[in-house]
Computed example of a mutant assay.
Amino acid sequence: MDTTRALNIFLSVARARNFSRAAIETGTSTPAISRAVAQLEKHLGLRLFHRTTRRVSLTAEGERLYELAEKGLQLLDDAMDRTMYAKDALRGSIRIAAPRSIGSHLLVPLMLKFQENHPNVGFDTVLEDCFTDLVGQKIDIGFRAGSQPDGVLISRPLAPLELLTCASRRYVERYGAPTSIDELDKHRCTGFRQPNSGRTVPWEFTVGSQVLSRHVSAIATFNDVDVEVSAVRAGMGIGQLPTYLVSEHIRSGELISLLPGYSSSRMGIFMFYPQRERLPARVRRFIDFVAREDMSSFFNSTSNCPGEDVLRIPKAIVEV
């Protein structure tokens, strides 16, 4: 029996809690997965899984093996990685998922800079605005704009995400500019529709110590923020948009920042990944590289991008 292969298959089933899903992740058939697990159980003389028609769960012995095997294979991976380090041979592909806007504005510059020192590392990027199942799609690292990912994911905040209310100069010349939050009800506004939920995202404003959440009537909604930026630049309406997508247009005078005293920085840009252990060397190196980078050049505001210490637990949100 190939012990290393059997343990890797066992770990895949243990994580997926499903033989069919483990087969997809390992690129083999479900019967082959079942045979490998059965051989491992016979070899150990232990039952590793409770199996029903609907569910697969670990036995107490399976839980113990899972804990030990994870650590053992991590040591094996580390030994292989250290050998590659000695030969200066970081190589292979890193699979990354991110929203389209982050892909073009953040990831491409980061990938280019990383490859200057590690030319044998490639990238396979999946750009979509829906929240991605990292395990199901075999993603190594994900990036997200908005609230911090929850669940079993490991996440790192990269920068605060400031939202600016703005409009084109042409729009302001034709319709005027609101002087208060309430006056937005009299204006033409755009909206962003969450790809996962299909709901239009409410706008946020910082008023004193509170963050106000307000549903603004939209004359056009979009599920792609870059397209919404284009609509606002064209004069379709007022939009509330991420700073990193509009700061350059505001500095050039094409867009005008409205209600600047009420901008919100409650959300952030996050990098996340499914686990800390057993990461390939190339993935760990890229994670550490991104974490060390100065993000102010990517997420700069119309003045200066606030430091990482601004990204805190959200203030109380009041819906109005």
Rank of each mutant, 00 (worst) to 15 (best):
L184I: 06
D182A: 15
P202Q: 07
R5Q: 09
L259T: 01
S247Q: 13
L279T: 05
H249F: 14
H105C: 04
E293V: 14
R276S: 09
F205W: 02
E116H: 11
N120P: 01
V290N: 06
I154F: 05
T243E: 13
A231F: 06
C130N: 12
E25D: 15
R266T: 13
V232L: 01
M111K: 01
T243Y: 07
L90D: 04
R278T: 08
C305L: 14
T221L: 02
D88H: 09
S213Y: 00
T30F: 04
K71F: 07
T190C: 15
T165S: 09
N300R: 11
H249R: 11
L259Q: 07
F19D: 02
N300F: 12
G307T: 11
L255P: 08
P202R: 04
G239H: 08
E116I: 09
L58A: 02
H249M: 12
A22C: 04
R188C: 13
R214G: 04
P195C: 03
L163R: 09
L106S: 02
K138Q: 10
A38L: 12
L161E: 08
S296H: 09
G92L: 02
E204T: 15
K87F: 10
Y85N: 15
Y273E: 10
T302Y: 03
P31F: 13
L107F: 02
Q39V: 10
R35V: 12
A38G: 05
T243G: 14
F286G: 12
K87C: 00
D124C: 00
S197A: 11
V37T: 12
H187G: 00
R282I: 13
F123Q: 07
S252Y: 06
L279Y: 00
G176S: 00
H118L: 03
E41Q: 13
S265M: 08
A316Q: 11
R91Q: 11
S252C: 04
S296Y: 06
N223A: 10
P242D: 04
F114A: 01
F114I: 03
P314K: 09
A231Y: 07
I250D: 05
N8G: 12
T28E: 04
L46N: 07
L65A: 03
L259V: 00
P306G: 10
